[in-house]
Design a protein around this nucleic acid. Structure first.
Lengths: 243, 243
DNA sequence: GTTAGAATTTAGCCAAGACTAAATTTTGAA
DNA sequence: TTCAAAATTTAGTCTTGGCTAAATTCTAAC
């Protein structure tokens, strides 16, 4: 009765998650964008979109795009929850660096049982953010709003707290980690070079760095230093968990 | 060049593992036994056996049975290593009880990357046994010999150390845990009832229990109290890890 | 308003891995 | 030794989820 989505395949879960994320970041989901995100052909995407529509998990406007239904979004959020819980668990429990957790979590997210999910969430103390600062949806499917301001938006002179790093590329993540630009770090925005030039920031250690504007746009910040929802400490620390 | 088995499907890995385990426990592997173990039809088993034979991972004697080649056994041992490392990790790191780890590990074993495998083995201190006492093959594919003596074989009066519990059924595992019959526990064999009757044993707490002969045959022991290869302590303890 | 090019869908194909039913081989009891 | 039952294999089918090529629809530049 309730297990209708116990029958969803890993491929379907991947599609739902991808549609959700495209919707969340770019507003709409076109067939081509979805195909690109999943690294498949557009024809394959159309095919699956029609299946998901039949299952009432998505709405398909032919030639226009896709949208998740409430049911589809619920499942997408479950997959996102799995993914981010696993990322945080691997980071906290095994000390796996933040640039490696995504690819591991992607493989594990579809085979995480409810039982194991609960054990992990419990172990981590019901965390609300993953190592990149992305919000972890609650068991009930509630997810925190996205930040509105990026490093590229902050006014020169502003003192901000890094909230979320949207970059996925491991090399860029390692670079940012190197600079100390990770969630909860404080940085000063020094200046924005003109003509879409780099953004200069000063990190806590006093060093100044110039970040590509495109990269800066993927780094989300909060102006105030009010203690926003943060990554909870795990029940017990296991290993020195550097990023 | 080396990644020829990066292309193996999860189904193939399951077959190789099942053939390996049937070979190890019962000596031979028939099509029907394999099909039963994997809960599929005999026709499906034949089909896959032929595929594995083409890949030189198994030898097929039509109507007689299957056997792994050296290459096939190597892969089977890798899968077994994954499975048992995951079982131990879930048990140690998350406190998941020993009767639940098998089903979780089965889902995770096929998506464990080399990187993650190494992190886990490192975290656990390169363990040699899983929570049931089953040996964990080394990275190189070396696996400890099986015990020769079960609780059903031990002479009355013998003082033995539990080495390995072969039962898989969660209910039975919970029962044995209840009695304190877990790897490394010491028990005295009191008597064997005639006509294949129960085996009476006394556990360390002084209580006496009667075990079904079939169950006793799945509990492997060592007579001497020499410290056999044991489950290594993890690098750091995380949670009280009860069975 | 046409119309070329981009985006999308349709049509048809393929491989994996399951199934059932039918054919074949092996085995063990009489 | 024979032969029926059990075990195994063969033949043919199905579903999933990819693919390419061709057809269709949308869109933006003229």
């Amino acid at each position: 009765m309730e297990n209708k989505h116990a029958t969803l395949t890993a491929a379907m879960e991947d599609y739902l998650k991808a549609i959700y994320e495209l919707q969340a970041t770019t507003g709409t989901t076109t067939t081509t964008a979805l195909a690109t995100a999943l690294n498949i052909s557009a024809a394959s995407a159309t095919n699956m979109i029609k299946k998901l529509a039949e299952l009432k998990l998505a709405r398909h406007s032919p030639y226009r795009g896709v949208e998740l239904t409430t049911a589809g979004e619920k499942i997408a959020l479950e997959v996102v929850r799995h993914h981010r819980l696993i990322e945080l668990f691997l980071h906290q429990a095994l000390g796996i660096p933040w640039d490696e957790v995504h690819v591991e979590a992607h493989k594990l997210e579809h085979v995480l049982s409810d039982n194991l999910e609960n054990h992990i969430a419990d172990f981590l103390g019901d965390p609300t953010k993953d190592p990149h600062g992305d919000p972890i949806p609650s068991k009930a499917g509630i997810i925190a709003d996205r930040e509105r301001e990026s490093l590229a938006d902050g006014a020169p002179g502003a003192r901000v707290t890094i909230q979320r790093v949207g970059a996925q590329d491991p090399a860029r993540l390692r670079y940012l980690r190197e600079l100390g630009i990770v969630p909860q770090a404080r940085v000063n925005i020094v200046a924005h070079a003109p003509f879409e030039g780099p953004v200069r920031v000063r990190t806590e250690d006093g060093a100044e760095h110039a970040l590509d504007r495109g990269l800066a746009r993927q780094i989300w910040v909060a102006e105030k230093s009010r203690p926003k929802t943060r990554v909870h400490a795990p029940r017990k620390m296991i290993k020195g968990s550097r990023q």
